[in-house]
Amino acid sequence: MGADRALGFLNEMLWASLLVAGPVLIATLLVGILISVFQVTTQLQEITLSYVPKILVAAFLLIAIGPWMMGRVTQFASSLYLLIPTLAG
């Protein structure tokens, strides 16, 4: 296996991980920014006010799009397993 092929696999892996993890990360980032703006405007510095909404949003998204995420990861893994016989040559 050449270096270019290995870099291609690495590139595919990084894009797949970004596509799978992106929605949850973006949603928690947006909720965190909204909560921070709320805390700054009200001067309410409660630590649980920051964590609880982000955890709830992340859990909701994992439940809602979890099957799609697992499908993408499974599809990527199975495509790699199907490529194993072609790497021997």
Rank of each mutant, 00 (worst) to 15 (best):
F38H: 14
A3C: 08
P53G: 13
G66I: 07
L7P: 00
L14Q: 12
I55N: 11
F76S: 02
A16H: 05
V24F: 02
A77E: 04
A64R: 14
I84E: 04
A64P: 01
L18R: 05
L56Q: 10
V24H: 00
S17G: 13
W15E: 06
T41D: 01
A88P: 05
I65D: 08
G8Y: 10
V40I: 10
T74K: 12
D4V: 14
L34V: 14
V52H: 01
L7Q: 08
L44F: 12
A16D: 03
F76T: 00
I65M: 15
T48R: 07
I65P: 04
T74G: 04
M69P: 01
L80H: 06
I35Q: 14
G2Q: 10
T42D: 07
L83H: 10
L30N: 07
L10D: 00
A16V: 15
A77H: 05
A77R: 05
A58T: 01
A77I: 10
F38M: 13
I55V: 15
S50T: 11
L10Y: 00
F60P: 01
S78G: 02
I63M: 13
V57K: 03
Y81A: 15
T48Y: 05
T86I: 11
P23F: 02
L83F: 05
G89Q: 07
E12Y: 06
G71W: 09
Q43L: 03
A27T: 00
A21I: 04
I65N: 02
L34N: 12
D4S: 14
L82F: 09
G32K: 00
I35A: 12
L82R: 15
R72G: 05
S17C: 09
T28I: 12
Q39Y: 09
L14R: 06
L34P: 04
I55T: 10
A6W: 04
A77C: 04
L49K: 06
T74H: 02
D4C: 11
L49I: 09
L62G: 14
V20K: 02
Y81G: 10
Q75V: 07
A77F: 03
I65H: 07
L80N: 08
P67Y: 06
L10C: 03
L80Q: 12
L62A: 05
F76G: 03
L14F: 10
M13H: 07
V20P: 01
T74P: 01
L19D: 08
L19R: 06
R5W: 02
I33E: 06
L87W: 07
F60R: 00
Q39A: 08
L62S: 12
I63F: 13
M69A: 15
L56F: 13
A6R: 10
V40K: 12
L29F: 11
